[in-house]
Design a protein around this nucleic acid. Structure first.
Length: 473
RNA sequence: UCCCCUGUAGCUCAAUUGGUAGAGCGGGCGGCUGUUAACCGCCAGGUUACUGGUUCAAGUCCAGUCGGGGGAGCCA
């Protein structure tokens, strides 16, 4: 008999009963093995194509039953050829009746194999990150992550956006969004010096100081001023010493930028994007979402369903502050005082979105003093057209703004903030040559995954987390 | 960076006021069973993170070091 070509576990289950009687070949890794002295063993095999494992029923008549099958433990790699049959047991519609099993890779010491079929702590699994993808949770995270990433690209593509590959290495020190990682090939122990004794970066690889990007925004604005609707989606680096469950030193950020657009258009875009992503997740990965609802966060599916169904609330920063002040009067306690002009604390944001509004809320028009120089100044002169989207359970998930398109206003703001205009010459050029109102925002990809799955720590929704004192693997 | 918590078997965790280290899972062997986080019995497995101190006696108390977690700030 010929050997059938391989089928994924996902396709096997998708076609299900229609395949009964056909011969199939599956390839994957052992989850569990259970022996029945009635003369068969059950081998659960996963290949990552879906949440479920396929159950192979292995008769003891196979030539290598004693020598191989009875020695299988979690993690062994193998392929099985067999006939699809309706399952006699509960838990699966179909199973594979094995006619041959080929072991590709044994687990050399099952006693110390780090991934057992039982529960592990996430902290422990971070120490074995090279193997954690083999667990239920991280397999599910991997598929959810992919699903959301593809949804992002699909959403933008379907809406006429172009994906712009902004640089990872940046020569501009004017991004201003946080501490940066230096990129250098100079000898750190003995760098070339200028006559004044400073490090002479003109002798560095790029002939100047360079860093890893903290945002593609300034670069992507240049392409927005020609292609109208653009976005970036790539790795972003922040050298902040942030030790929290919501920060990474290397994370992936989505930054759309739209020409001829104001702040309300921007908010609508953010809402549409998030809803599109989560709709896709609910439609395509219910197998994994059910698992998250069962084991990680009971309410996660319901939360997403509500999220995609409800309109986001919109409110001005000024009204948000008023609401907070009223709450304080009525006895709500905050650690930090509330008054107009403050940069809202996490506790304030959480109260707004979780208690006061009860769903995602777009807060707009912040005091200019607490926001970036490039945000568009509103007429009264006190606020800028900034936008934060706050979501229950996670806080700020999107930060954006309408950009200041008027050169004289931009220059005035840069002067006020003590920025060197010469450093921003190309950014300012955009305001000199055919400037238009435009807007954009940044969405932290991992934060969206946390929100969707209920995973508690951002280090567990990226394959290999980078954070202070953490860069293993 | 600050505050709090924490480190015991391969993993998840116990161990009273300081009194000689234990269970479940996983692993090995055997039994039983179309099994499903299978079940039953037996066995192996530990310098209690490290260094020092207090004490007749330290997993337990103290100090330091290292690691981990949670919260805060910053932000996405």
């Amino acid at each position: 008999m010929s050997t059938p070509s391989p089928i994924t576990v996902a396709n096997l289950f998708k076609q299900g009963l229609a395949l009964v009687g056909t011969r199939q070949r599956v390839q994957g890794w052992v989850r569990t093995r259970r022996d029945s002295k009635a003369g068969i063993s059950f081998v659960a095999l996963t290949d990552g194509s879906c949440f479920d494992s396929v159950q192979a029923v292995v008769p003891n008549t196979l030539a290598n039953y004693e020598s191989d099958v009875l020695k299988l433990t979690a993690g062994c790699a193998l392929e099985i050829v067999g006939t699809v049959a309706a399952s006699q047991g509960k838990g699966q519609a179909v199973e594979l009746h094995a006619e041959s099993i080929e072991v590709h890779g044994w687990v050399e010491d099952p006693d110390t194999y780090p991934i057992s079929p039982k529960q592990h702590s996430f902290e422990y699994l971070r120490d074995v990150a090279h193997l954690r993808a083999r667990t239920n949770t991280f397999g599910a995270i991997g598929r959810v992550r992919h699903c959301l990433a593809m949804a992002v690209h699909r959403f933008f593509h379907e809406n006429g956006f172009l994906w712009v590959h902004t640089p990872i290495v940046t020569g501009s020190d004017c991004e201003g969004a946080g501490q940066m990682f230096r990129v250098s090939t100079l000898d750190a122990l003995n760098p070339p010096r200028t006559p004044e004794g400073k490090v002479d970066y003109t002798q560095d690889f790029f002939g100047r100081e360079t860093n890893l990007t903290v945002s593609g925004q300034l670069n992507v604005e240049t392409w927005c001023m020609a292609l109208s609707k653009v976005y970036t989606f790539g790795p972003t680096f922040r050298a902040e010493n942030s030790n929290t469950s919501r920060h990474l030193a290397e994370f992936w950020m989505i930054e759309p930028e739209i020409a001829f657009a104001d702040l309300l258009t921007d908010a609508k875009l953010a809402e549409d994007l998030l809803k599109y992503m989560f709709k896709a997740l609910l439609a395509e990965r219910m197998d994994d979402m059910k698992f998250f609802a069962e084991r990680i966060d009971k309410g996660c599916v319901e939360r997403l369903e509500k999220f995609v169904a409800a309109d986001f609330a919109r409110m001005d920063y000024t009204d948000a502050i008023s609401a907070l002040e009223d709450a304080v009067k009525k006895g709500v306690k905050f650690e930090y005082p509330v008054r107009w002009g403050i940069d809202m604390q996490s506790e304030h944001e959480r109260w707004l979105t979780e208690t006061y509004i009860g769903r995602p809320v777009a807060v707009m028009n912040y005091p200019k003093e607490i926001k970036a120089f490039y945000m568009r100044q509103n007429d009264a002169g006190k606020t800028v057209a900034a936008l934060d989207i706050l979501a229950p359970g996670i806080g700020e998930i999107v930060g954006g703004s309408q950009r200041e398109e008027r050169l004289e206003r931009l220059d005035a703001r840069m002067d006020e903030m003590g920025l060197h205009k010469a450093d921003y010459w190309w950014y300012r050029d955009l305001r000199r040559y055919g400037t238009v109102p435009h807007a954009g925002f940044g969405l932290g990809f991992e934060r969206a995954i946390i929100y969707a799955t209920g995973m508690a720590n951002i280090r567990d929704v990226i394959p290999f987390p980078r954070a202070p004192k953490t860069a293993s693997f």
